[in-house]
Nucleic acid binder design. Structure first.
Lengths: 350, 350
DNA sequence: CTGTTAGCGCATTCAA
DNA sequence: TTGAATGCGCTAACAG
């Protein structure tokens, strides 16, 4: 079965006895040729199975591919299963779609090792949570390609953020209205060295521009201080990956502490963490919120459908994606943006 | 701010006083030049900010882009929020990543209208749930590009499926062991005309090759018949989109029927539908499984973490994605595949 | 081991 | 309104 090589524009032109320019125009600039000829060309094209100009050649020639790459910090496998990342992608996809662009998914890891090539096909980049290594080959060089950052702040590029510190302060403040005996914090990727468990003095924390976690922690700490707690005395457990599987053992470690040591308030940095805590607490017969109050962060749908409903901070990740996409398409100025969040008081921490 | 035009391979070669071939080889075929020269080239490249061969030109020249497109039946916005579609994408991404390929996301709709161009950049296609219109420009033409179908069966292409009919039969058989008084079916995109509500004789059903729903219905009906029910007497409600928002009103309609008409068994064609039913039943004080038994389909994580745990059929969408990806990369023969499913007996229908 | 050369398929000048 | 010519940046033959 010899593949009947895809017909080219040139061949189509030859077949019709017209110039390649006319065929090109028939597809790209209808006003540049007579309707009659255009119709004839399009008809013959369809008859011969010519589907229009080849994207590879077209993008080489024009320099534009109508492809925007999204570079994700985590693996695609992980990101696609994360509600927040998925929502971000939804928002991006919505805008790109509406403007005839398509979405290329890259992961930071893959990107670094192999296939450093396919990146340069994109007209622009949206980076989520980290700066793609291939783009910072030499940091002192001027920005070479349009890039918008989401949830981190690389120097020299516009970034879209939510108000992490105030949001965290707000929810912690709410939670602390009812004074806990033993508050605790469950953070997400806070430490420089991977750590699934209790954070100690030995751990160094990631720099604030590399992780939103630091801002969230700052917000928690400010609220704790205001309520008369000593922030440094409040234990922190850390989690490296926002999945049930990774969260569960850490949460179990917390919940299985002796009654007199077990926290009665968990300030969690994501809804996934909070939901895992909710599930494991249920399994152990720990009552929420009577014995244990839990707060989340993100406002993902799953946390609002189940009972008890999660007390959390809602961030609009879809909108974050829309804005990033509009920026990269030049539909709005590429300047730093800060989105606001909303406190959602559910049943897990009334 | 004049953008310092990206340096080209040719310019780099000139700068170094070597041929373009050597530079190309330095990046693509290390064994084709002396380590010394290669090192010199790579060093200078880094110094000048040359990131390697341009993907656009490279793909034109070689004919391959290392990009695989996934064409989704629904909008990207929808698909990215659907657990099953996300899992499929995860599986695909996992394999593509591992082999240095990247993932281009296309939606059937967008694809049809605009940007028919960017599709031809892909080396191959994985179509989920529908045949991309641009690919069937003339059906009688031989298959022009590698394509693998998932969850539907276009003529002339390999397809990856699960055993929908036996799986549905299996779960319905289980559910009917405890004879219900009033069983009902909640289907997903069963009808040719969009319908969110009760399905009547006036509705025509989609042809089996276009929707897996028909197979699932057949499985349910076979089990009903075996248990002495008249399939045609069992009411069907249909839902067009697998989201809480769209499911909720239809489920509400069912649950708000007078007690003596309300079904006491819901055979749902997706976990999302079943979970919505679970949530709405809870809100109404309808006890599951005492007053209402519910079965799902898919085996998504969300259904297994919550209480009561969903009785469902688990399909491995991730593996489905892996297989499709391996086929499109030529890592395994492109022939029809049928994946098996597993009955998961939870609390919603013991 | 290194250099020269000829396109990949197309969009866009410019001339007719 | 149409056609001929040029090269986008690169890789793969081939020649040296």
């Amino acid at each position: 079965m010899s593949s009947p090589r895809r017909i080219t524009l040139k061949e189509l032109a030859a077949e019709l006895g017209v110039s390649t320019a006319s065929v090109s125009n028939a597809f790209n600039r209808p006003d540049q040729l007579s309707p009659a000829l255009r119709e004839r060309i399009l008809g013959e094209a369809k008859r011969l199975g010519y589907r229009g100009p080849d994207a590879k050649a077209r993008s080489l020639r024009t320099g534009r591919s109508r492809i925007i790459a999204v570079v994700l910090a985590e693996s695609l496998t992980y990101s696609l299963n994360d509600a927040v990342a998925s929502e971000l992608l939804s928002g991006i996809a919505e805008v790109l779609d509406a403007h005839g662009h398509t979405l290329l998914l890259l992961s930071g890891r893959q990107h670094a090792s192999q296939a450093p090539g396919s990146a340069s096909i994109a007209d622009g980049f949206i980076a989520y949570g980290l700066l793609p290594p291939t783009l910072m080959v030499s940091a002192d060089l001027p920005a070479q390609r349009p890039l918008v950052a989401v949830d981190f702040s690389p120097e020299g590029y516009p970034a879209v953020h939510i108000d992490n510190e105030p949001a965290s302060h707000m929810i912690a403040r709410h939670a602390l209205r009812t004074p806990p005996r033993r508050p605790a914090i469950v953070s997400l990727r806070l430490t420089a060295e991977p750590c699934n468990g209790r954070v100690t003095q030995a751990h160094t924390q990631l720099p604030p521009e590399q992780t939103i976690t630091r801002s969230r922690l700052a917000g928690f700490h400010r609220a704790l201080e205001e309520r008369g707690f000593t922030p440094s005395a409040v234990p922190i457990w850390n989690i490296e990956e926002n999945t049930f599987e990774v969260c569960a053992p850490v949460i179990a470690e917390i919940l299985d502490l002796p009654d007199e040591e077990r926290p009665d308030l968990l300030l969690c940095m994501s809804d996934r963490i909070a939901l895992t805590a909710l599930t494991l607490a249920e399994q152990r017969g720990i009552r929420v919120p009577e014995d244990l109050r839990i707060t989340g962060f993100d406002g993902i749908a799953e946390g609002q459908y189940r009972a008890p409903r999660l007390t959390t901070v809602r961030q609009d990740s879809v909108e974050k994606g829309r804005i990033a996409a509009r920026m990269i398409l030049g539909l709005e100025p590429a300047e730093p943006r800060l989105l606001h969040t909303a406190l959602m008081i559910g049943d897990s921490c009334p």
